[in-house]
Structures are given as structure tokens and as C-alpha cells.
């Protein structure tokens, strides 16, 4: 019996190693990000400037916000494809209600309430009815996206309210407000996942839902809350985008859905649930945003940027598989 755990003990020692430690996924990603930044800084004029860094920060804020809230949801075994559509409808609601005479913050409140509603619908359908979240949120994505088109007739609507536009365009101590909002969501979620019992439940529920149920953990409630958080973050992201652009287009956010999911996966979160971290997602969001920015500064066409993003994603997932393999050995 003393021999029983010596191989595992050895595996445990390996875990301290760079490639196989438990936090190694995030570290590898961070290393890659630093390389990327250094490479761009050397080869690209104007890249390594405060101004450009702030531009990257405010450009990624909107995607980063949605990816942040999507991360714990995927860790817990859920999935939200409707988040970008919710962002679109959120901006549209704010623009239309404000134009109809609602005070701007009341309109924002209505958009957030819409987010709560969509989140509850996603949660109820996928937990109590046990429908596949991929199908449920694909359906709500279509419904919500359609609603935004119906309300606007497909047109872009302006929102011009200085206090509101500040959340998209303003700065605090030189840092763009959207970036600060996004970062605070990451800090908040990281704290919840690490330091609260709810955070423990998220990993337990995603790692083995049936075991979690038999332990008596509130599996449905956890997933429900996460669906609501995800949809509300979509609504906030949509408000931020509308504030930034000074206008709300019904389909403004939809093209970014795949970037959101790609960032979560690139960040090391397992689509099968149970593993992942919001810091990984944040670095992944920065990698994708920096890649876009750097390639644009180098006059690479946006068509090639899509190709590059795909290649990075495959590389990252490949490296991650190798890493997990090393860990399991």
C-alpha cells in the first residue's frame, strides 16, 4: 500500500513544473502575451505608446465584459450564445426608450432588467427542462436578435446623453472607463470564484453535476444565477458599446459572439465544464485585442486578422491538450 501513491506523488511533484502545474495554463498564456507585446513593440511604430495601450483597453472592454461572465457559466457546465444578441437589444432599448422620453438611467435600468429576464429564461429552460444550453441559447439569441431588428426596423439609433456616453468614452485617471468597468468585473468574479462557497459550487457543479446533486449542492440555483449574470453582463456590455459609439445598432454586437467564446476557450476554460479561470479569459481577451491592434498597425487586412485569430485558437487549444496530457501522466 505504501507503493500505491508513489507514482501519483511523483506526478504531484511534476505539477510544480512549468508545463504541468495547475496554474500553468494561465502562465503559458501570459508568457505568450508578453512575447506578443514585445514582438509588436519592436517591429511596430506607435504600438508601444500609452495612447495605443489605452485604445486596446477600451476596444477589448466590451468583449472582455461578456467573456468574463461567460467563463464561470461554462465552468459550471452551461453555455450562453445569446449574450451578444442581448448586448445588441440592450443598446437598442436604451436608445429607443431615451428617445421616447425616458430618463437615460431608467432606460439603462430597463435594459438591465431585460438582461435579467433573458438570463432567467435561459436558466429555467436549460435547468428545469434539462434542454441542451446550446439549443436554448441559440433560440434565445435568435429571438432577442430578432426583437432588436423589429424594434428599430434594422436602423441604427443615436443615444446622446453626456452622462451616459461617459461610461463608453470617459476616462478616470487617464484610463478609459469601459476598461475600468471590465476590470472590476474580472476582479469581482475572480474573488467570487476563489473565496466564496458559491465559487466552490461552480467548479463542483461543472466538474461532475450528478455528484454535486447527490452531495446536495444547489446545482440548478448555481446555473440559474450564472445564466442571469451572463445575460446581465451582455446588457451592460451593450450599454457600454452604445455609449462608446453614441448610437445603438441592433446587430452591433452579434459578430463578436464567436470572439467571446474563443476568448473563454483560449483562456483555458474547458467546454466540458469543471476547469477554467477568469484570469485566463482576461489574458486571452487581451491577446486577441492586441493581435487585432498590432496587425492593423502593420496594415494587415482584417480578413487576414480572422485567419490569424483562428490559428492562434487552434495553437492554444493544442498546447492546452499537451499540457493536460502531461498533467495526467
Amino acid at each position: 500500500m505504501t507503493m500505491a501513491n508513489t507514482p501519483t506523488r511523483h506526478a504531484e511533484r511534476l505539477r510544480g513544473g512549468f508545463l504541468s502545474g495547475p496554474a500553468s495554463g494561465v502562465l503559458i498564456l501570459l508568457g505568450f502575451y508578453i512575447l506578443l507585446v514585445v514582438a509588436f513593440a519592436i517591429f511596430t511604430p506607435f504600438f508601444a505608446t500609452t495612447r495605443n495601450a489605452m485604445s486596446i483597453a477600451s476596444n477589448v472592454a466590451f468583449i472582455g465584459m461578456m467573456a468574463a461572465a461567460g467563463t464561470p457559466l461554462i465552468i459550471a457546465g452551461g453555455l450562453d450564445l445569446s449574450v451578444a444578441a442581448v448586448a445588441g437589444l440592450s443598446g437598442v432599448l436604451i436608445a429607443l426608450l431615451n428617445a421616447a422620453g425616458w430618463p437615460i438611467w431608467l432606460a439603462v435600468g430597463a435594459a438591465l432588467a431585460m438582461g435579467v429576464g433573458v438570463g432567467l429564461a435561459n436558466g429555467l429552460l436549460s435547468t428545469t427542462l434539462r434542454l441542451n444550453p446550446l439549443i436554448v441559447t441559440l433560440a434565445t439569441m435568435s429571438i432577442v436578435g430578432g426583437a432588436a431588428l423589429i424594434l428599430t426596423g434594422g436602423l441604427t439609433r443615436p443615444v446622446m446623453q453626456p452622462s451616459f456616453n461617459w461610461i463608453g468614452q470617459g476616462r478616470l485617471a487617464g484610463v478609459p472607463v469601459p476598461a475600468i468597468l471590465m476590470l472590476s468585473v474580472y476582479v469581482g468574479l475572480a474573488f467570487v470564484l476563489r473565496a466564496t462557497h458559491f465559487g466552490r459550487y461552480v467548479y463542483a457543479v461543472g466538474g461532475n453535476p450528478e455528484a454535486a446533486r447527490l452531495i446536495g449542492l444547489p446545482v440548478m440555483r448555481v446555473q440559474m444565477v450564472l445564466y442571469v449574470i451572463s445575460a446581465v453582463s451582455g446588457a451592460v456590455a451593450g450599454a457600454m458599446l452604445a455609449a462608446m459609439l453614441g448610437a445603438a445598432a441592433p446587430a452591433a454586437a452579434s459578430p463578436h459572439l464567436l470572439t467571446v467564446i474563443a476568448a473563454i476557450i483560449l483562456g483555458g476554460t474547458s467546454l466540458a465544464g469543471g476547469r477554467g479561470s477568469v484570469w485566463g479569459t482576461l489574458i486571452a481577451v487581451l491577446i486577441l485585442g492586441t493581435l487585432n491592434n498590432g496587425l492593423t498597425l502593420n496594415d494587415v487586412s482584417s480578413f487576414w486578422q480572422d485567419v490569424t485569430r483562428g490559428v492562434v485558437l487552434i495553437l492554444a487549444v493544442g498546447v492546452d491538450q499537451v499540457r493536460l496530457h502531461l498533467q495526467a501522466r
Binding site: 461532475n208 450528478e210 455528484a211 447527490l214 469543471g274
Partner: peptide, 9 residues
Amino acid sequence: KADGILGDL
């Protein structure tokens, strides 16, 4: 294995 342990925890 199936519904007892929380394997990754």
C-alpha cells in the same frame, strides 16, 4: 467515479 467524486477538486 461517475457520481461520487468531484474528480478535479
